[in-house]
Design a protein around this nucleic acid. Structure first.
Lengths: 344, 344
DNA sequence: CCAAATTCCCAAAGCGCTTTGGCTGCCAGT
DNA sequence: ACTGGCAGCCAAAGCGCTTTGGGAATTTGG
């Protein structure tokens, strides 16, 4: 059933039917009601493509997920963020277009999206320090928002990020307060902006206390379970092994825990662990008693939170960009204790 | 730059330019080349909405992810499947539309999609035993493919699924061969079709050997880490506790392992664990030495494998539905051994 | 050398909607 | 009784593309 058929059926013009359905005032309430009932009865919905062509708006937001050749993977963080975003989009009547594009195709992909006009705006995931995509998008004129930040890019843009630096500074301080001095940072890849910020926070806390910043305790890689496991194994053999681990992802923290327990040590007794917790729906930190002490910030809420759709609230392109820091809160769980042989 | 401008720029009609770009034979090779170069230079891409309106095809596939009210979550399995699908779509020039719809809105959502015509077809995730969505979609006439199966629905439809029953039958046999008799099934929710099939496989193997099927050893829930952990804790206190666990998800298996090791037992020595492994990119079973013995089937490959786009290869709506079973292979890792005190 | 076929191009219709610019009829105001 | 305003409707243009149905030049065949 299309508009033509519906209006013929009602003995009205397409104009009137369209206006009735879109809430315009030029149509009497009685006919509006009649129209709406008929539309409902025949399950009429305006054709998206036609509507989009007529209005110039796609009513869709694109999400671009980078797919690196070296580390092909679908980060669970994306999944949760997208779940959050998806919910708010559907409330707002927007569709979500998912684009997985290989690193090498980034430029082509963005130009194409801008030209094809199948989205009204983009959300860029996994921001890098000096993210070429941001500069690219600024040239295309396509509105966009970044999940994360690009520290080295100074021109303004919409972003939405966790307070990574201060969260990790606090977490590190938390461990320092407990008496730890050998704290191992199990971070994400440093090309990722969040990882860089987290390291800065970690280092700032150590520096403020005059604790040595030991490169042998700082790791950066993709945040898999295995990576956490391997990192612990590698560091146990150090002359002066860490008494605490600070992980960037709960998945990695699971690996950290596995290695610790496998080596006969007890997490929370012999070794403390703090992790950043994105509050992933399938990876919840223990419900009642948190398994990990954590800096927590729900990435899912971030996806849904910033408005509908995120970053595109202001229709006015001249408006200043929106920036939204999400604050990570610290939840204290079991596995943090003073280091062994310490009198607190 | 749109078609009109481009053709004016070239001094050609829109017809000719359109045909040149779409590879029609009615245009000379020299002008085609000229057109393509100009299009390239001006970064021209046909407007998706206009093209869609003219051709009647959306060039997009929708993926519908259910969002239950009780258990709000974005399953990592979806994420990996979608990553796989996304890659093959972009090769085929299709967009991917993601729809997260709450259980209660399912009917409305599908009818709307069918009426709005913003997708050419749907992929339905998380198939249930008697999935109402399948019946619904069959009525709408919108092409669709199901990831999973709906055992109780007999009318034909496109699907793509793992050989869940035989995989779990084999896994159970594997444990039985090792001498295990008390095997705990840590399954997904039974409303999910895959969970049902897996239980059938488990039961079939036990029955074939005349081993008692003990309801106290059969669990079904959302496959979170915590669930695996809790299940082990619960079963350790049984009078005759299990000597082996058979998990439906590697995430749950991680929880199983945690509980085992936390209780001072050693996985692979005291207790055997087999898991189904969807080969999730962030949750790889150990790279060199598998951490778990597993029935493995990459859900990501499943997403990309079935064609481009999946399930919609045959343009002919009269063609028989496509069905594609993905075979899970068994990989033997450490944590399976004969039960303790057994002479093999 | 002329008709027929072929090559290469174009104008215009149409996809299904929104939106502009009316037009008609009724009522209030004077 | 006439004008102005307003409520309620409609015809038609236009969004940017594809596709139909030619039409003019060029080549081919007899």
């Amino acid at each position: 059933m299309n508009l033509k058929q519906l209006s013929a059926h009602l003995g009205l013009s397409q104009t009137t039917v369209s206006r009735a359905l879109n809430g315009y005032p030029e149509v009497s309430e009685t006919t509006r009601k009649r129209v709406m009932e008929a539309a409902d009865k025949h399950n009429y919905r305006p054709n998206t493509r036609a509507k989009g062509l007529a209005t110039g708006r796609a009513m869709a937001i694109g999400h671009v997920i980078p797919l690196s050749a070296q580390h092909e993977m679908m980060n669970p963080v994306f999944a949760d963020f997208i779940a959050g975003a998806g919910e708010s989009y559907s409330e707002a009547g927007y569709d979500m277009l998912l684009s997985l594009v290989a690193d090498a195709d980034q430029e082509r992909a963005y130009r194409e999206m801008a030209a094809k006009r199948n989205v009204d705006g983009l959300v860029v995931h996994a921001a890098k320090m000096r993210d070429a995509r941001i500069l690219l998008l600024q040239n295309t004129g396509l509105p966009f928002a970044v999940h994360g930040r690009a520290s080295e890019i100074t021109t303004p843009y919409n972003w939405l990020d966790v307070n990574n630096k201060s969260a990790f500074e606090r977490a590190t301080n938390f461990l320092l307060d407990l008496g730890h001095r050998r704290i191992c940072l199990v971070n994400g890849q440093e090309s990722m902006d969040f990882a860089h910020r987290r390291r800065k926070g970690y280092e700032a806390a150590l520096a403020a206390r005059g604790v040595e910043i030991d490169p042998a305790l700082m790791f950066a890689d993709e945040m898999t379970e295995i990576y956490g496991y391997d990192t612990v194994q590698r560091t146990r053999s150090l002359a002066d092994p860490p008494t605490a681990y600070l992980a960037s992802s709960i998945i990695t923290a699971f690996g950290v825990r596995r290695a610790i327990e496998e080596s006969g040590l007890k997490m929370g007794r012999d070794i403390s662990v703090i992790t950043h917790d994105d509050d992933l729906s399938y990876m919840r930190n223990g419900a009642d008693v948190p398994v990990f002490t954590a800096t927590r910030s729900s990435v899912r809420e971030a996806g849904g939170g910033p408005g509908q759709p995120p970053g595109f609230q202001n229709q006015n392109p001249r408006a200043p960009p929106q920036t939204e820091p999400f604050l990570a809160e610290v939840t204290v769980g079991r596995p943090t204790r003073p280091p062994p042989h310490t009198v607190v």
